[in-house]
Design a protein around this nucleic acid. Sequence first.
DNA 1: CCGCGTCGCGTACAACGTACCCAAGGCGTA
DNA 2: TACGCCTTGGGTACGTTGTACGCGACGCGG
Lengths: 254, 254
Amino acid sequence: MYASTLSQEVLVPPPPRQAGLVWTRPAPTRRDRTALSRDRIVRAAIALADAHGFAAISMRRLAAELDAGTMSLYRHVQDKDELADLMVDEVYAAMVPPEAASSRWAENVRAIARRTRLVMLEHPWFTTLAITRPPIGPNALAYLDSSLSAVRGAGLELPEASRLLGTVTSFVIGVVAAELADSEPRDQAGAGGPAWQETVAPYMRDMMATGRFPSLAQLITQDHDDEDPDDQFEFGLDCLIAGIAARTGRDTRP
Amino acid sequence: MYASTLSQEVLVPPPPRQAGLVWTRPAPTRRDRTALSRDRIVRAAIALADAHGFAAISMRRLAAELDAGTMSLYRHVQDKDELADLMVDEVYAAMVPPEAASSRWAENVRAIARRTRLVMLEHPWFTTLAITRPPIGPNALAYLDSSLSAVRGAGLELPEASRLLGTVTSFVIGVVAAELADSEPRDQAGAGGPAWQETVAPYMRDMMATGRFPSLAQLITQDHDDEDPDDQFEFGLDCLIAGIAARTGRDTRP
DNA sequence: CCGCGTCGCGTACAACGTACCCAAGGCGTA
DNA sequence: TACGCCTTGGGTACGTTGTACGCGACGCGG
């Protein structure tokens, strides 16, 4: 657009190159000011996904967000799936711990798990995408490596550290997935706000009234002070670390 | 198709009802033989997804698989997302444990976790779909309820049982997700077979050669007898149960 | 001054989900 | 027996998607 249509009108004889009146010179083409780049594209895609969910990303909309033509994106990204790869890897970058590691492996594991969960919750689309591709991007590898050495440095052998981390991150993924499954439908119910609650509540009441789910019914009616997700997470993490310490015969100190 | 076009040709006077030559009688319309139904649709969708992945499901293809018109599906299912809901809930049905529960809660938890994992692995598309919606279908509720009572019956109070199960199933989801992330790209690399391995191996060698991932590099070169996923799972499960027993101050016996 | 490689993008197409509407059959009622 | 209604099936059509293709414009080395 812009420059090209403009210059075409004026172009009937090829336009006088060399500085002249501003009007005769085509406006600086967009790519001079804000060149498209893989990085800019990925960042814009992440922003879009954070704001409106991954489903809202179409190549057209993404391009529009960047003031670019749709097909221009394909100069920097092979296809949409590759874009997803890049988005995921970008998020892994935010997960790598910032240097300082305690000398107690349990503390390190705890810190890694907490950080991982928080980043995942910031990008609700991440979990779904991440579990469909192996973590082999540069940032994913950096994440794995630094986690590994954070735990290893605190007195565990490598294969042991690996198994342990695998167990913990599996747990983290699962917890986050569960949290998102509960919160997302509420979110995309949208502006109405409590619309979701009001839809589900009567349904659940009916289902419980059938008597087919006695334990569940009892659990729900019983005022179980609503179980904060943070607490659930910390509880599980504690269990896991305690269990690991016991199973591997190592104390939680170095 | 079939019957309708045929009968229209013959129908110029309304066709002689009553048994006559087969040819004059319109063939039994398809819905007499194999009526469409929500159940049939969901089952076909699951079969399709198991065979070719969820992405391969389009309403057109699914209808074709059922010898039906595309739009006929919408008589039994509101939209594609609702179809996904139904597919997920159908899988939950396969997860509810078959009655017999041990009197030791740890055994019950172990059994539930194992069964859940196996069913999830049978339907690789399930995890991705399940973590984007809350488990409130009838079968999901049945699964939750029976899990709950299996653990409760073995000597735990309800809220305790709930937190405990939440932790364990989070872990299971995470483990399965990790397993699938590793195995899926290999699968969809498809007929070529080792094509995936041959693509990634050189890349990984190069990345490790950069020296930016020392721990990871060491872990990989070190012949770490390839860590069977089953073992990883059992290890994590053991840790978790041991940790829970320790944390909640309850023994693994009733 | 002239190619040549790189970048941006307009056009075009196939495949998708699904709104809309009509046809055909089964069934209750007159 | 005849008629009207309701349910089920499905053809057509529209808007949106990912992306193959090819062309025009720019920057750079001869």
